[in-house]
């Protein structure tokens, strides 16, 4: 649970810092002055963006807990790693490209370049679909080699972690459809919404990439002492 605790400690640190900043020197009963400026009362950010950040905190908690569970399980004696699929590296590269494409799209959206937004969104979507497909190929390779979900604890965690991440990616693709449809329709009135949608997608894609990098490290890195996969038997 150390991993989850570190994450939460960080999060709580942020909350406490923010709270102290807002509260220590305030005497709420004494303040009756003029109407405070509207912008100081709330965060200078769109609500949807705040919501996404809060959601990412929740999702991080979820992944941290899965990894904590796995870190506790790996210490038990019967742990036997499964072969490391080479395709994982290719998939990782695809996801990195998808994330870059999203960032490029967000950049285009901020400048109001509709054509590039369309192209960028399409590219990011395609790359993401390719990533999911690649993950499925990895699964079928493992299953083909006789590693099913219940074969050992390591396979169980491999399928579980990749499945949970994959579901988040699919969820992202569902969200992606909205700005994509908006970009295709190309109405100027939607420009602000489109920009917001693209920015949210970009944040989420970077998050998915970050989670995947951590998961990958957990899955294959020997140095961390956590690896599910062993390179001893390549697949």
């Amino acid at each position: 649970m150390t991993i989850t605790l570190l994450f939460l400690a960080g999060l709580m640190g942020v909350v406490v810092w923010w709270l102290l900043r807002e509260s220590t020197r305030v005497q709420p009963w004494a303040v009756q002055g003029p109407v405070p400026d509207v912008h100081t009362a709330t965060l200078p950010r769109h609500a949807a963006k705040t919501a996404l950040i809060v959601f990412l905190a929740v999702a991080t908690s979820l992944f941290a807990l899965f990894i904590s569970a796995y870190a506790m399980r790996i210490r038990l004696l019967d742990w036997s790693p499964l072969p490391q699929p080479r395709l994982l590296m290719v998939n990782t590269a695809v996801l990195v490209l998808a994330s870059l494409a999203m960032e490029w799209t967000a950049f285009a959206a901020r400048r109001g370049d509709q054509d590039r937004v369309r192209a960028g969104l399409a590219a990011a979507g395609l790359l993401t679909v390719a990533f999911v497909a690649g993950q499925l190929v990895v699964w079928s390779q493992l299953a083909g080699a006789g590693y099913f979900v219940a074969t050992s604890a390591a396979t169980g965690f491999f399928y579980l972690l990749t499945a949970v991440h994959g579901l988040h990616v699919l969820g992202g693709l569902v969200a992606w459809m909205r700005p994509y449809a908006r970009a295709r329709s190309g109405r100027d009135a939607d420009a602000a919404r489109l920009r917001l949608g693209v920015e949210l997608c970009a944040i989420y894609w970077h998050f998915l990439l970050a989670v995947w990098i951590v998961l990958l490290a957990v899955l294959v890195s020997k140095d961390l002492g956590l690896s599910i996969c062993s390179t001893a038997v390549p697949l």
Binding site: L19, E22, S23, V35, P36
Partner: peptide, 10 residues
């Protein structure tokens, strides 16, 4: 985000 004007946290 949706607190009204003047509704500070404290």
């Amino acid at each position: 985000q949706a607190r009204t004007r003047g509704m500070t946290l404290m």
